[in-house]
Design a protein around this nucleic acid. Structure first.
Length: 469
RNA sequence: GGAGAGGUGGCCGAGAGGCUGAAGGCGACGGUUUGCUAAACCGUUAUACCGGGUAUCACCUGGUAUCGGGGGUUCGAAUCCCCCCCUCUCCGCCA
């Protein structure tokens, strides 16, 4: 959520930001409703003040009369009751006036809040303006020693690569047919070493973040209430991407949703809290199963492990002080962690600065990290793929957009201190998502004989195993 | 799943229709005392929003709301009524 006071001061900034992000939202309507509501609020408060003043003045008088009324009957009682009624007339009239204004406010509120939740965070000034993902800008490229992604895999390694589909089939690492039998399209089973490799890369990523980079590991809910989805900024915009569970057992019943990322659980941890400044920055990771409906992606990447409904992901979040420089520094650092991880695992990658159109509502800036997948891309003259980058990570900088929705603040000067409260800043980035990560991994580490070499740093997680196949 | 108890400020805990934004305690902060520390004593001690002022990110001031959340009764609700959420205890069931 954006700060409505900032919107009042500079509506154009938010209108332009929404336009650049290609997110339709009626800022003018929001401004009008806000002005209307504030006018009503002022009037209501004026009436309430009068009401309170009267209550203090008349209240004791009524109390006194009621005391006298006790045990009395007949004309004397009727007289006292009449006096009470007379005294009550003015406050009763005020009450009706207040109620009328309140009903007007209640009419405005849902629309106002609805629009407010949709106003996206404007992109940072240094985010390139673009109209689609094609306008994203490559800012860095890294290749492992003795590998050049500008040339084909074959030119590098001297043999024609298999795609990950062929590798998992030939090595018995996944079973798509039976996965689909159990759970429908875009489902899979990881089998044998496929499952072990999946677990190994996840464990490797968890240990890397906790032992080397000071992150605290958490296991968080993946079935969450709607408020968590709204609070983290995934709703209302991304509602159709989430699986919805109608839970009717409890009381009146309320809805639950499956999370598409561990970010929801991690950011929800301190929802509604006022943190001690000294606690910041908070650095959390989780490994969680992620569920995505992939609505609107029908027919896209239908084969293999790329676009699937369920996967596991190590996610990192940082919650820091409300300082743009600090947010930017953390963003760079969180990307750096992933770079180190990918370099150790020998995966060629590139960094993409996402353009305005590719940013979600909650991001001020986003860097996608794409891994080189030899089995992707155009088909060459010999009908084998030329290789292409595919997204494996995404690093977002959100400033206070998320924490404002989650009502997550910190107090300067420590707990119980008198410092003012400020909404925290938040950031998130993938550490490693598998099995999608297995695509570049298997494809880049494959050998001419059809086996796959396991990099040395990963072998402890595979019981010392050096090869698959 | 059955039965019961409860949710009050940073924390503990009173209050049971008006004098309650809320006693008391703890903690924190400021001060006095003191060779230093401790102790003692005095004072301060919620948040959000709307408006006004000095002016600029720090204050002053008027007001409104907030005692788990929402609605209702009443001239007036932390207090009474209804719905919901959450926590705890006992019994049952279960990986």
């Amino acid at each position: 959520m954006i700060d409505i006071r900032q919107l009042r001061e500079n509506p154009a900034r938010f209108a332009l930001g929404a336009k650049a992000k290609n997110i339709p939202v009626d800022i003018d309507r929001l401004i009008a409703l806000d002005a209307q509501k504030r006018q009503l609020l002022t009037e209501q408060e004026r009436l309430r003040a009068e009401q309170n003043r009267l209550a203090k003045e008349i209240g004791p008088q009524i109390g006194k009369l009621k005391g006298q009324l006790k045990g009395k009957h007949g004309p004397e009682a009727a007289d006292l009751e009449g006096q009470i009624e007379q005294l009550s007339a003015k406050p009763t009239a005020l009450k009706a006036a207040v109620a009328e204004i309140e009903s007007k406010i209640n009419e405005i509120d849902p629309e106002l809040n609805g629009i407010l939740l949709q106003v996206p965070l404007p992109p940072d000034a240094d985010v390139p303006v673009g109209s689609s993902a094609d306008d994203n800008v490559e800012v860095k490229r890294w290749d492992p020693p003795a590998f050049d992604t500008r040339k084909s895999f074959e030119a590098n390694r001297g043999f024609k690569p298999k795609t990950h589909l062929e590798l998992v089939r030939d090595l018995g690492l996944a079973d798509f047919e039976r996965g689909v039998k159990i759970a429908g399209a875009r489902s899979y089973i990881l089998t044998g070493d496929g499952m072990r490799l999946h677990q190994a890369v996840l464990r490797f990523a968890v240990d890397f973040m906790t032992q080397e980079n000071g992150f605290k590991a958490m296991s968080v809910p993946v079935v969450v209430r709607e408020e968590a989805m709204v609070g983290t900024g995934f709703f209302p915009a991304g509602r159709e991407q989430a699986y919805h569970i109608e839970e009717s057992k409890r009381g009146g019943g309320y809805d639950l949703f499956l999370t598409g990322t561990g970010e929801v659980g991690l950011m929800g941890i301190h929802q509604g809290e006022i943190l001690d400044e000294a606690m910041l920055p908070l650095r959390y990771i989780t490994v969680s199963t992620c569920f995505r409906r992939e609505a609107g992606a029908a027919g896209k990447d239908t084969a293999g492990l790329y676009r699937i409904h369920q996967f596991d992901k190590v996610e990192q979040v940082v919650i820091c002080k409300a300082d743009e420089a600090e947010s930017r520094a953390w963003h760079a650092r969180m990307i750096g962690f992933v770079e180190t991880l990918l370099q150790r695992l020998g995966i060629p990658y590139r960094l993409l600065q996402c353009c305005t159109a590719d940013l979600g509502p909650k991001n001020a800036s986003m860097i996608d990290i794409e891994s080189w997948m030899p089995g992707r891309g155009e088909l060459g003259p010999d009908k084998s793929p030329t290789g292409a980058y595919g997204e494996t990570h995404s690093a977002s900088r959100l400033y206070d957009f998320q924490c404002r929705r989650l009502n997550m603040r910190y107090r300067a000067g420590g707990e119980g201190g008198k410092g003012e409260t400020t909404f925290c800043h938040s950031l998130n980035n993938t550490v490693l998502a598998s099995p999608r990560f297995l695509i570049p991994f298997l494809e880049i580490h494959q050998n001419a004989d059809g086996t796959v070499t396991i990099p040395e740093c990963l072998r402890p997680y595979m019981g010392g195993q050096a090869r698959i196949g």
